[in-house]
Nucleic acid binder design. Structure first.
Lengths: 213, 213
DNA sequence: TGTATTGCCTCCCCTTAGAGGAGAGTCAAC
DNA sequence: GTTGACTCTCCTCTAAGGGGAGGCAATACA
């Protein structure tokens, strides 16, 4: 059992926030001591983690409350949350792209089109639609190419293509920003990539991958 | 010159927000028409872009105002903004990491340490410090690890590293500029890459390479 | 030329997600 | 038994807008 201050330190939030979440019924302490002190157990901490994740995704506290009460299946929630965070990351990537364009066009003295200035600032719904479009485009070109090789399920291939693209962009980004080869983020990235390949039947040893890389 | 609605559509914000930014003196229209209509020119749009970027980085509007008035050098601002966005992206990556850990430890039924639950939720300053630490740690372990594997000639490794880097950058560049997978330049690039690998004793068939790619 | 629609304005109040602080009780340690 | 750190409730304050009313302005079209 943790007190407010302990929870606050553990989760890097303020005590005020815990009060607030209690008051609005979003995170009720596991137990209240005789003196009225809030005491939180592990399951409350887990709930707090969920809350903070959802908050990171710009859900309102009201929405978070619903999400957490309607759906008791934590794994599904986690899946969803990851998808949304990935989307958000991609949005940031797109903003970075726009930033780059702005910088280079400015160096060259070429003016940018006004509407170009705002790519990446779409609301997430628009953004989702745009992704959808691109996915379809990929599927098409991808299917076309595939006629020469083995037939595949589009669903499956799509997944692979997306993973690959994500991997490449992330790596390229790392190179561009001078992130070191031994950075933890890079290692994690590669780890996931290899795991993904393995899962999809293209096993490759870390050594071979390293040699090629 | 654009009216509020036009600017709103261009930049995907609401008219209300433009009113608001005008009222607090953050974004003053280039001109006010006889009837009191707000009219925005390109330089106002550029300022709006800056504002939205800073907002994305969680600066308060007050801070943004200062940043934009104190420093007239747009390029420096852009540089800074990109750094911060990159940092933010890395923070998201770390959160994703934590999410993954939570998921797998949950699948295996192993409980997670309470404090582990909150990695990635640090405020950005803490977060920067943590990254620094980890980098150093990795550098150490990396050197350490290398002792166990085969000794290599730096000359040779260098060559390979250079080829690899060149290949990656070229590919990344291609992706970024939307060059198609079946572009002749890409094919040539891949051809050279495969040949290089072969020469250096890491033969890989075109099929395997394609599968992995 | 009139009329309808759409767009714009100001003004005022509402909301969300907390932060700040006052005043008072509680706990642990020396 | 006192002190210092911690906790509680209650109240007010803030930032960043959103909603809507009431009233001009501009455009479209018949």
């Amino acid at each position: 059992m943790y007190t407010v201050k302990e929870v606050a330190e553990l989760s890097k939030v303020t005590v005020k926030l815990l009060h607030h979440y209690h008051r609005i019924g979003l995170l009720i302490p596991t137990e209240i001591s005789g003196a009225g002190y809030r005491l939180y157990g592990t399951e409350a901490l887990e709930r707090l983690q969920q809350i903070l994740l959802y908050r990171e995704l710009d859900f309102t506290l009201e929405q978070i409350k619903e999400l957490l009460q309607g759906n008791p299946d934590r794994s599904t929630i986690l899946e969803e949350q990851e998808k949304r965070i990935q989307q958000r990351k991609q949005r940031l990537e797109r903003i970075i792209e726009t930033l780059h364009k702005t910088k280079t066009s400015r160096e060259r003295g070429e003016p940018m089109e006004d509407k170009e200035l705002f790519k990446g600032f779409e609301r997430e719904e628009d953004w989702k639609a745009a992704l959808q479009e691109q996915n379809e485009y990929l599927k098409e070109t991808y299917d076309y190419e595939l006629l020469d090789s083995a037939p595949v399920e589009p669903q499956h291939m799509n997944e692979i293509a997306l993973e690959g693209a994500a991997f490449m962009t992330s790596m390229a980004d790392g190179l561009r920003t001078g992130r070191k080869h031994n950075d933890v983020a890079v290692a994690a990235l590669i780890g996931r990539h290899l795991e993904f390949l393995k899962e999809h039947g293209h096993q490759i040893s870390a050594e071979d991958f390293a040699a090629q890389a």
